[in-house]
Design a protein around this nucleic acid. Structure first.
Lengths: 281, 281
DNA sequence: TATATCGTTTGAAATAATGAAATCTGATGT
DNA sequence: ACATCAGATTTCATTATTTCAAACGATATA
């Protein structure tokens, strides 16, 4: 085989455009970002990823990915399966232990959550605000045949979900405005489409203590959400119940489950862990 | 090292505090390691850490830590509290959603775990092997007043705990020998002190399906453990029950709870998720 | 007000990461 | 069986990225 052919091939194959749009702050560590982006790759549902696949997704070349993966394996956060592909290792959970143990209230809300899940024959979850998303920190009662696997760490959009709206209702004044601006910046057209629904749901949370979403996040789920409050260390926390659409009756959510969820939230607040912020002008 | 060499060195490289002791493989990415080590700092129980404190612990200088932390904040895994100190952010949980959702059996074992926890008036937990440690992936029933907070992601030693011994009993032949060697290398004298207890417990797990630990891990906890098996993707999984020492009766663990735990493990194995490896030679 | 301590910024030095090419492996296909 | 392909890793020259010291600003303490 001639050299020329090799070179031509290499050029055709994988000339990665130097990430032109998103120039990144030079005061950030790009190596650290890339390494962590490798871990994030697994959030897309793939349990095992090869070197080449990762390098394709991240726009890095194979040697770089190989080195970073080697490092992550060395640290124990990545492991190799029988086929040589990379998988997330259980040690990642250890990294999170401090996050979870800083939320001892996760255990206290489990009782009420189970009751709610049973009540609505669906699923209950508690989430906290994180950037433009919510993150589940506790779930209860996912019946078999549930369309997805609700579990700790699952994320969803703040601007089109019952849990998200409930969380937004905990922000006021400048903080609230800033968060909306952040969402607008990140989700331009989509945010616009949900702006009215968001405003209405937030308002309802503040007045009635709950809101309802009809398939705004997961098309086949209807959900009710209620704000719990902010913890001592500033986290916004809310609770939600979800039911498969085919089994959900709107009036039930509006006049029965919703108010009950709000009551449950009130009851939970009696523990004193969560504080509803006073609506600052 | 001789004085002469010190001086010579000092002259040669005017300023070289060249990472003493742990020289690391040059084929690993040191920047990535350092960045993740910052996240690991929080595993030591501190919820909030300042820039200076981190740089002290890691032996890096402040500007470097500042930059890395800035990057981690940018990525959303670190947040700043009211006082300007860093805390782990909930987004970290999102990173291991894939880890948890790859273990759907976590939910199936929850029922039996609750029963066991109630039965022994203590705590039940399921853990997987990870390096020289186990990692809790599910916990049930920590009564109020429990000495520590068992939660997902908590880690403990493989060589001196009921859960750890149960996990070790799932390895055979070369794999088993390698793991013991790894433990010996990492915990020299401590491993030696527990070598006999470990061997006995592993043997008991293989023969009777359970083992008992009297305060080997947490001095004030007595625990029984039982191997569950290996999952399809190669993880070793075991279950354990723990009771505060002052409330634990040895005979109960040996003749009652232990066997029951082994039975529960048998029942769980009926699901087909966990396979007990055939003792290779 | 003076004095620490902490966090960030800057700029220069050089370390450490990058990517092309080569090597090696295992899989697939003819 | 052989050829071909795709993936993973190693090597090495290049250079982009990190690092560290010093200085700065801010905040807290005496």
């Amino acid at each position: 085989m001639t050299k020329a052919r090799n070179i031509a091939k290499a050029r055709a194959d994988e000339r990665v455009p130097r990430n032109p749009g998103s120039e990144q702050d030079a005061s950030l560590s790009s190596t650290l970002i890339r390494g962590i982006e490798i871990l994030q790759c697994f959030s897309s549902g793939d349990r095992a990823l090869g070197n080449a696949e990762i390098s394709r997704r991240l726009g890095l070349n194979r040697p770089t990915v190989s080195r970073l993966c080697k490092t992550l394996v060395h640290l124990g956060y990545l492991r190799r399966d029988a086929k040589g592909a990379f998988r997330l290792a259980p040690k990642l959970l250890a990294l999170n232990y401090p996050v979870l143990s800083a939320m001892p209230w996760r255990h206290e809300v489990l009782g009420p959550m189970r009751e709610l899940a049973e009540l609505c024959a669906g699923n209950a979850s508690v989430g906290v605000m994180s950037g433009d998303s919510f993150v589940h920190v506790q779930t209860a009662g996912s019946p078999p045949g549930w369309p997805h696997i609700p579990d700790i760490g699952q994320t969803g959009p703040l601007h089109r979900s019952a849990l998200g709206w409930s969380l937004l209702s905990l922000l006021h004044g400048r903080e609230f405005a800033d968060k909306l601006a952040e969402l607008r910046a990140l989700h331009a057209e989509e945010f616009a489409a949900f702006a009215d629904a968001t405003a209405a749901a937030v308002e309802r949370c503040r007045k009635q203590g709950f809101c309802v979403s009809y398939g705004d996040w997961r098309p086949n789920l209807v959900a009710a959400g209620a704000p719990l409050g902010r913890t001592e260390d500033g986290l916004c926390v809310a609770i939600a119940c979800a039911v498969p659409r085919y089994r959900a009756v709107a009036s039930y959510f509006e006049t029965d489950l919703g108010p009950r969820l709000a009551e449950a939230a009130d009851a939970i607040r009696l523990s004193g862990v969560f504080a509803l912020p006073a609506p600052a002008d």
